[in-house]
């Protein structure tokens, strides 16, 4: 089985270690990984802010880059959601190649559980208390709710109950720059309700950037790390 990793624009520049850990995880489970060189951005920042033409150009580019891939795996729920949910609308619903790409595209935890059938991968998180932030697009566009939590538990972590775990962190791409005050208040709601934990993790670079940016600004909160890195630690012995 061969997987093309799509690091995504944020992942490539800001979460490079997490992308590397995603590769290590996939290899650990016997998957051959390639990283197509032409990859850039899925187009979501343009799509969500109403710039359809630009979104379509980036979608077309991404489609070309990954057209031959057996599977495409992203360490980002929202970029995976963008490709699965909106590429047909942007590139043509009757294009078989586009339709096929959407069904071969997975968020990392979704791929590990749904395709590889991973359940109890290690003990590296034993004794750790972890909070999981559900990124909105993984949760609602991809329907990925149980997979990341099961993987964390499968590595020995205690995933703690958190009343705001399914609430938006306030990132929303350009939303966070257009309406920064409301966006920051949304992050505060997450941080202010967070129980005492050893670390907070999530599967989206955007959410992590928002939550850690706000937590650092206020001087609060636990370490905030990408799910790929936490799971890589988890499978380690």
């Amino acid at each position: 089985m061969r997987v093309s990793l799509f690091a995504t624009c944020l992942g490539n520049e800001f979460y490079a270690d997490a992308c590397a850990d995603a590769v290590r995880l996939l290899r650990h489970f016997g998957v051959e990984v390639d990283v197509p060189e032409g990859q850039t951005c899925c187009g979501q920042p343009a799509f969500n802010s109403g710039h359809q033409d630009e979104a379509r150009r980036m979608a077309r580019h991404t489609h070309q880059v990954f057209a031959e891939s057996e599977y495409v795996v992203l360490p980002s729920g929202s970029c995976a959601g963008m490709m699965r949910s909106f590429y047909p609308e942007l590139l043509g619903t009757d294009d078989a190649s586009v339709r096929s790409l959407t069904t071969r595209t997975y968020e990392l935890a979704q791929f590990l559980v749904q395709v590889l059938g991973v359940d109890a991968p290690g003990t590296g998180l034993s004794g750790r208390v972890v909070a999981y932030h559900h990124g909105c697009h993984a949760l609602r566009e991809l329907g990925v709710r149980d997979e990341p939590v099961a993987l964390l538990r499968g590595c020995g972590a205690e995933v703690i109950a958190w009343e705001a775990d399914e609430e938006c962190c306030g990132f929303g791409g350009l939303f966070s720059a257009k309406l920064p005050e409301v966006s920051a208040a949304m992050a505060d709601r997450k941080l202010d309700t967070l129980p005492t934990v050893d670390l907070l993790t999530s599967a989206d670079g955007g959410c992590l950037m928002q939550l850690s940016g706000r937590a650092t600004h206020r001087g609060v909160g636990p370490p905030i790390r990408h799910l790929a890195s936490v799971l890589w630690e988890g499978v380690g012995s």
């Binding site: 690091a7 992942g11 490539n12 520049e13 800001f14 979460y15 490079a16 270690d17 992308c19 590397a20 590769v23 290590r24 990283v35 060189e37 966070s176 720059a177 257009k178 309406l179 920064p180 005050e181 966006s183 920051a184 992050a187 950037m209 928002q210 850690s212 940016g213 706000r214 650092t216 600004h217």
Partner: peptide
């Protein structure tokens, strides 16, 4: 607006593509 409410995100020391080209263990 982002900077007004949050600390600046820090780019990774090397991009993932660079790490990949250098060879991942």
């Amino acid at each position: 607006g982002w900077m007004q409410e949050r600390s600046a995100p820090k780019p990774s020391p090397k991009s993932f593509m660079q790490l990949w080209k250098e060879g991942l263990e």
